[in-house]
Amino acid sequence: MSNSYGKLFKISTFGESHGRAVGVVLDGCPAGLDLDLEFIQNELDRRKPGQSKITTQRKEEDKIEIVSGIFEGKSTGTPIAMLVWNADARSKDYSHIADRYRPSHADFTYQEKYGVRDYRGGGRSSARETLARVAAGAIAKLFLAKYGIKINAYVSQVGGLSLQKSYKELNLEETENNIVRCPDPVMAEEMISLIDSVRKDCDTIGGVVSCVVQGTPVGLGEPVFDKLHAELGKAMLGINAVKGFEYGSGFEGVKMLGSQHNDAFYVEGDRIRTKTNYSGGIQGGISNGEDIYFRVAFKPVATLMKDQESINQEGEAVTVSGKGRHDPCVVPRAVPIVEAMTALVLADSLLRNKVIKL
């Protein structure tokens, strides 16, 4: 039962990398929401493969089909089913690893847990499943926009190249102006060069996606087990290749004294605010109205275009040869995925916080 997320704004995804289609059923979207199909498609286009020289060259248009839950351009309050048909699947690219375990993949664990695995591109464990999350996340974004909530993610690090600027020092409108999705044009060029050189060496490299949420009202998140930062952490760690999540001051906060780290309150007009925001917009697991910001670390893509030592299902030593089409660095295409999962968390939290009528 691990294919669903959310309590009131709930998604269930389905499909495999090389199956007929990948899709999602979204239940709990309030009736009357304008479903901007162009916006939803644009979000999928930001995630789709084959968009630049530093992404996988699999060619998929990822054209979304909404098959239920919409009438005359608006949500009806019933389940919204969406799917994308796979068009450029090449299952033969994976026949050589049908009985072999690729290093750092889900091959071994899926085989042991289920007794069967879809070796074609990783099947259900493939990141292609994330297109379903992006489609549902696009609707969540449309819902959140009604309440002035805006989400911006961007690439802040590739390998050892790291932006040292706060999101407040960046023009986040520049994020989509380059293929690596870094809002600093100088750093973007360096990142692109690094990824391209790694690609030419038939290797991969990791990175970090930063995200900021603005306009969040006070009160989102539930105490104890469903704290807002815990839900965000779960959502981010559920994305393929993610190895770390930190919000607010994160791990750097341990270097500070409490007297330095505490966010002092003050009154601004009719709002209670904090002078600093080391809390990352969340205190006691509940949003306090300040910007929510966090970082998500992605490992280097596990599929290499190089030979690697491994074993097969019989426990025999084998060589795993890299074939197929894969990203040399996942973070450029991960930006819309991070935004989508953030939107799904916040939409669910908003509905849980109070009854919403559009």
Rank of each mutant, 00 (worst) to 15 (best):
G285E: 10
V331H: 06
I239T: 04
A241H: 13
M341K: 06
S210C: 10
E176H: 14
N262R: 14
D88H: 00
L131K: 12
K306I: 02
V242S: 11
R120D: 01
S259K: 11
M305L: 14
K59P: 09
V267P: 06
K150M: 03
G322I: 01
D184L: 05
V22I: 15
G280Q: 04
V331F: 05
I179S: 11
G244S: 09
R47C: 09
D201K: 14
P185C: 01
Q313H: 09
G50R: 02
A87T: 15
L220E: 03
V224T: 12
I282Q: 10
A264N: 12
Y154I: 12
L172I: 02
I11D: 06
Q214P: 04
G121L: 10
V218P: 14
R102F: 08
G269I: 05
I337L: 06
K63I: 15
N353K: 12
S156E: 07
R333I: 10
L163K: 05
M187G: 06
L144T: 03
R46H: 10
N171C: 09
A297D: 13
I66G: 01
R352K: 12
G244I: 13
E174R: 12
C182K: 09
V254W: 11
H261W: 14
Y278S: 15
G238V: 01
G322S: 01
A138D: 06
Q57A: 09
S95G: 14
G19P: 14
E38L: 15
R58A: 01
P336Y: 02
A153H: 08
I151T: 04
P79W: 00
F39S: 02
S2F: 15
K299M: 11
I11S: 00
K113E: 09
R58H: 01
R100G: 03
I151D: 01
K146R: 04
E72Y: 07
T342P: 07
D45H: 08
R100C: 07
E16C: 01
T303I: 10
G19N: 07
S197L: 03
A302C: 15
T274R: 15
Y5Q: 00
L26N: 00
S287T: 12
L26D: 00
L232H: 06
R58V: 00
V198I: 10
M305R: 05
K227G: 09
I311D: 08
K323M: 11
R181C: 08
P332G: 01
G280N: 08
A302G: 05
A343T: 03
L350R: 03
G215L: 02
